[in-house]
């Protein structure tokens, strides 16, 4: 192999050498030196290519996937319920049709997945980094202005409130609070009583879970990490929450 070809091949592949190149390096100290120089240059190049990767990227990727998974499984469950309900209706006949209406209703699983979607979107968009989470804080006055429409007031701080926004989930309008829990962020949805459903959904996902509480003048839903003690934050929140009579 001539010198030019040797150099050409090392420029094209400084790290992986074929057997001809390896032998040439072993035979000739000058070629060895050139190979070492190319390797030095390659290391420099590799360093330049190593741009910083956002610190919590992996967990954000997994969060997004788990939301996607949850959505898909909710859709499947939905179909499953409708399928069973249809089969039962077929077996038992038309006489009990009216009794089956709650089973056929789609609003419970739909509402749950819409809430999860909102929780996820807000968390990803507002809090893309731990610093952004730490720095976000909303005042009690601000929250109370928005709570006013629901006939409620918060008397005192129950947790650090990271964000407060109205959101529309199909025909349900909600006030969406994101507050700091013990193991992560907790989403609280405050809604006018939803007449179309009998019970508020209970969510048991791989990463998120959720529970609800009905009051005469409002429905509340809490969604947080699986490891979060939701009842604790629920109790604190509802203790501070006063309804206008």
């Amino acid at each position: 192999m001539d010198d030019l070809e040797f150099r050409r091949q090392l420029y094209a592949s400084p790290r992986q050498h074929n057997s001809d190149i390896k032998q040439a390096i072993l035979r000739d100290p000058n070629k060895r030196q050139f190979a070492d120089e190319m390797l030095d240059f390659e290391q420099k190049l590799e360093q330049v290519y190593q741009v910083d990767v956002p610190e919590d990227l992996a967990s954000r990727i997994i969060l997004k996937q788990s939301i996607d998974k949850q959505k898909q499984s909710d859709q499947k469950k939905n179909r499953w319920y409708i399928g069973i309900a249809a089969s039962v209706a077929f077996l038992v006949g038309l006489t009990v049709n009216s009794g089956l209406n709650p089973l056929l209703s789609q609003s419970t699983p739909d509402l749950a997945s819409l809430m999860i979607e909102h929780a996820q979107q807000d968390m990803i968009h507002h809090f893309s980094s731990p610093e952004k989470i730490q720095s976000a804080q909303v005042s009690l006055t601000n929250v109370n202005q928005k709570l006013n429409g629901f006939g409620a007031q918060l008397n005192g701080d129950f947790a650090t409130i990271r964000s407060v926004n109205f959101c529309q989930m199909r025909d349900v309008r909600a006030l969406h609070l994101i507050v700091q829990g013990e193991t992560g962020l907790v989403n609280i949805f405050i809604m006018h009583p939803i007449k179309s459903i009998d019970t508020l959904p209970s969510i048991q996902g791989d990463i998120l879970k959720g529970q609800g509480q009905r009051y005469p003048s409002a429905d509340l839903m809490y969604i947080g990490n699986k490891t979060e003690d939701l009842s604790k934050i629920q109790q604190k929140f509802e203790q501070e929450l006063k309804w206008r009579t």
Binding site: Y49, Q50, V51, V53, P54, L57, A58, I62, Q65, K69
Partner: peptide
């Protein structure tokens, strides 16, 4: 899920850098 999370952990940095460039 385990397979997926291993995939994310092993490759997200290289994939991000590739996307960045």
């Amino acid at each position: 899920q385990v397979k997926y999370e291993a995939l994310v952990q092993s490759f997200h940095k290289d994939i991000y850098r590739y996307a960045y460039w």
